[in-house]
Each structure stands twice: as structure tokens, then as C-alpha cells.
């Protein structure tokens, strides 16, 4: 479903590589976690998967079709990719721009030209799924961090994407909400959704995905292993500066 081959990427006017020789393949229905120290290129890779940035060299294919800057200039092609790949930003604030939570969740389905009745059904299903019924008429800006994250996820889910891409979804959430979100993502994955996410919460990684990719500070993939094996390799995690000697591994 997602095929990335030898991708290298630099931000405009930057001398430094954000991604270096990245190759990976994610099959339909897989759940994959990207791990690595801060600034190693995880978020950039998520942007690449969403067609927001494009490889300087190498190629990115989604469902067999190469995603290029030229193709993404065509609204129909871009719209199709953006419907299939839903992106939940690290900063939920930046993702929410509608006057209230209802409009926020309805934004995508309305864009897709669904009837207002269908839009209402999707909104109420998403609201129920994420337990945010009491927020429906509130302004997204005034919600707490956890509530904003849930609204952001609902706003993406209402478009029914095939792939759900989440950039640090556990960031800033209390432990209970973190665990709830992990369970929720797991149920989405069990229902056949492809889930790609980044996280620093090593306690929940195994629950979230069966496979993990580890990035190093050189912006390269240092390991692509089953999550359990990766978390057991403490020396590897130390070498890429993800953990220090105080980290005792999995309990």
C-alpha cells in the first residue's frame, strides 16, 4: 500500500537532510510505529506519506501510484489521496479551524459531497466513538489538550480514511486518556485500518503496533523489526539516543 524507496529529503533552503535513504513498505491493514529521538525525521516522513512534501530523490508510491509534486497539483488526485490518508497533527490546535466541534467533524464529509443527513450520521457516530458528545457545540479552541486531540481524530475519521497517520498522538495526554487512545487505535487496526504513528511512549508501543521502525540521529532507518524484538534491544535504543542507561526496558 505504501512503498517508499531510497527517499532523501531536505527542507527548502536547508543544508541538512531531514530524511536520508529511507526505504520501507507498509502493507494494507498493518500498524507501524516510527520511533526515534527528537528531530530524526519521523514527522517529515509522515508529511511525505500525506503528500505534503516530496522526495528530493527516490520515490513514494501509494496503492502502486507514484506520488509526485506535479500530480498533487491536480485537485482531484490530491483530494483522492487526502481522503485515503488521514493525518492527525502533533499540535491539535493547528488542525482545528471551524467555529464549533460539529462543523469541525462535518468539514470533511461535507467536502466529500455527502448529504447533510449522512454527514449528521457520521458526526454523531464519531462523537459517540470518541465520547465527546458534551463538546459538540463548543468552540474547539477552548477545549483541553485531550479533548482537542479527540476532536482532531474525529475530524479525520469522519472522512473514513484507509490509512490513519498520527504524529505523536499521546503527546500531552494524561495516562488514562493515553491508554484509552491506545485501545481505540488498536480497535481501528483490528477493524482493518492501516495505522502509522510516531510516539515516544515506549510503554504503549507494543500495544499499538506489531512492527516498529527505529530512526537514528543521522535521519536514516536504523532498524525495522517486530516491536517486541526492537524494544528488547536496549543497546540499539541507546545507540540511537532514544533511551539512556536509566531505562530498564519493558516490564
Amino acid at each position: 500500500m505504501i512503498e517508499i524507496e531510497n527517499v532523501t529529503y531536505k527542507y527548502p533552503d536547508s543544508e541538512f537532510f531531514a530524511l536520508r535513504n529511507i526505504s520501507l513498505r507498509i502493507e494494507k491493514g498493518e500498524a507501524v510505529t516510527l520511533l526515534g529521538p527528537n528531530g530524526c525525521g519521523k514527522s517529515t516522513l509522515l508529511k511525505l506519506i500525506n503528500g505534503l512534501v516530496f522526495p528530493e530523490s527516490g520515490s513514494y508510491r501509494f496503492d502502486g501510484e507514484e506520488i509526485t509534486h506535479k500530480k498533487m497539483q491536480k485537485p482531484v488526485f490530491a483530494g483522492k489521496l487526502h481522503q485515503k490518508v488521514g493525518f492527525v497533527f502533533q499540535q491539535s490546535d493547528a488542525q482545528l479551524f471551524c467555529p464549533d466541534v460539529y462543523d469541525e467533524i462535518a468539514f470533511g464529509p461535507r467536502q466529500m459531497g455527502l448529504s447533510e443527513e449522512e454527514v449528521g450520521r457520521r458526526v454523531s457516530d464519531c462523537v459517540e466513538l470518541l465520547s465527546i458528545g458534551s463538546l459538540i457545540r463548543r468552540s474547539p479552541y477552548h477545549l483541553s489538550g485531550g479533548e482537542k486531540r479527540k476532536v482532531a481524530i474525529a475530524a479525520v475519521l469522519s472522512m473514513n480514511p484507509e490509512v490513519l497517520v498520527l504524529d505523536e498522538p499521546m503527546n500531552g495526554l494524561d495516562p488514562r486518556t493515553c491508554r484509552w487512545l491506545a485501545g481505540f487505535l488498536k480497535s481501528l487496526h483490528e477493524a482493518g485500518r492501516t495505522v502509522v504513528l510516531t510516539t515516544h511512549n515506549l510503554d504503549l508501543v507494543e500495544e499499538l503496533s506489531e512492527r516498529s521502525l527505529l530512526f537514528d540521529e543521522n535521519h536514516e532507518v536504523a532498524a525495522d523489526l517486530p516491536t517486541g524484538s526492537l524494544l528488547d534491544d536496549i543497546e540499539l535504543l541507546k545507540r540511537v539516543n532514544l533511551v539512556d542507561e536509566c531505562w530498564r526496558g519493558r516490564i
Partner: peptide, 11 residues
């Protein structure tokens, strides 16, 4: 990031 979000959801 907000413009990216708008672009991604403007399907």
C-alpha cells in the same frame, strides 16, 4: 500547519 490541515481536509 493550519494551512496543511486545511489542504489535507479539503478533499
Amino acid at each position: 500547519n493550519m494551512l496543511y490541515a486545511l489542504k489535507l481536509r479539503s478533499v
